[in-house]
Design a protein around this nucleic acid. Structure first.
Lengths: 234, 234
DNA sequence: ATATCTATCATTGCATACAATTTGTGTACA
DNA sequence: TGTACACAAATTGTATGCAATGATAGATAT
């Protein structure tokens, strides 16, 4: 897996980021320096620096003398998330519509194409990563150094939350995803037209859709069975 | 200066943060690993980790194979700053008013007392640090993990911009500072009363005041002399 | 005189060895 | 049986030496 000698530090960074975004490494998972350094054929010194950098980006948390763990997610996290997301994302998309350059718009379209491909492909992790990349591009379009740090953290947990709350069997959820894809298309159109009001509105709508998806999961319709009986009531 | 063996890593962190906030270390200044490690009696390994951590917090920038520098500030920075600040800070103060606990309010009052003392003391750097601490406390009151990263970056450059654009001789600027102090008092009152609308409004007003102070500096009234003559016109 | 190539120097990056801290386990004693 | 203490093991933190990379200056050729 990890034989390339040259950029192995970057490789670890990318791998860990992906693994955390896709929940291959779950929140709270222990990141052992010694194990990782063996696994990636890298000494502990640069590996510790990688973990420090990931901590700065919000992927992991480091406690003194107690090592690194994948950043936790709690109930409070969800609330904080949906409180902050519409505002930050609205601002990002508004600025993106104002400032996007032609090559950036090309990037965004490519990201959306990849997202649609991933949608058809059915690999949940690939979807989450593609979606993450789409939004990441909008962040760079906005180009505001003060907004970016919060936005990036939102994107991390957006991916993780999606992975947590996604039920592949559910038809309603599939429909929801198609709606999300359509919104991406609308977002691209608004940005390309430089219509910042429309872009900001779409941001809100997009996050509301996410919220609906999660509400479906957190507060499902009650099971139509009584515990311990194994038969439907009445 | 640095003889305590025990927490020297933390010491370096604090020192560098302060030095950067007060512009003792100016934007773009080179941070040499070897020099710092001698100066603080610490080997290069932990010192590099300190620099990595500061990079994550937005104090410094690291370029591969080319070392660390104090984070730059450009013209664009100022624009980005005043674009993002009212929104983020408004949100922070709104949440602070909703969520502040009694001990946090006590902290905030203590911070404001210290700020007033610093105002009278006349040490510009001390003022900037005291002001920074006041706002930092409001950030913790808000307690939203997604908003905090952007807020902290705003605070870093708020301190640095203040240090850059402050003219101690100017009477108008002294008056402006008193107004800022009064706003701090009003902010405390709004938070203590749990009045989130008022807190959010005060946030906007507070940043507008900052903007006025900087506009005075960036766009001063033209000098009443003609270049090259040495005499007043007319 | 200018430009380019090369050799040397300074600085950063990585690996290994060692020290310190924390965690886990066993045992003695109430 | 439960608690406290002490020792052992595992893991993190730090120091130092060496390798690799980028900057600088000098020499040579055009």
């Amino acid at each position: 897996m990890a034989l390339a000698k040259k950029h192995s530090k970057e490789d670890v960074l990318h791998h860990l980021r992906h693994a955390i975004l896709t929940q291959e490494l779950q929140p709270g998972a222990d990141l052992d320096e010694a194990r990782l350094s063996e696994e990636w054929h890298l000494s502990r010194t640069p590996l510790r620096e990688v973990l420090r950098q990931l901590a700065g980006e919000g992927f992991v948390e480091i406690r003194a003398n107690r090592g690194a763990r994948v950043a936790e997610m709690s109930h409070k996290t969800l609330r904080d998330f949906f409180l902050a997301a519409p505002m930050i994302y609205g601002a990002i998309l508004r600025l993106a519509a104002q400032n996007a350059t032609a090559p950036q718009i090309a990037d965004l379209k490519a990201a959306q194409t990849a997202f649609k491909t991933a949608l058809r492909g059915g690999d949940i992790a690939a979807r989450a990563l593609a979606n993450n990349h789409f939004h990441d591009v909008t962040g760079r379009m906005a180009g505001n150094v003060y907004l970016l740090p919060s936005f990036q953290r939102l994107l991390i947990d957006h991916a993780r939350i999606s992975m947590t709350f996604f039920r592949p069997q559910d038809a309603e959820m599939a429909e929801n995803l198609n709606a999300a894809s359509d919104q991406h298309d609308a977002i691209i159109a608004a940005i390309e037209a430089g219509n910042d009001d429309a872009a900001a509105d779409l941001a809100i709508a997009h996050w509301n859709l996410s919220r609906d998806r999660i509400e479906q999961f957190v507060m499902p319709a009650g099971l139509d069975l009584q515990l311990g009986t194994g038969t439907a009531p009445e």
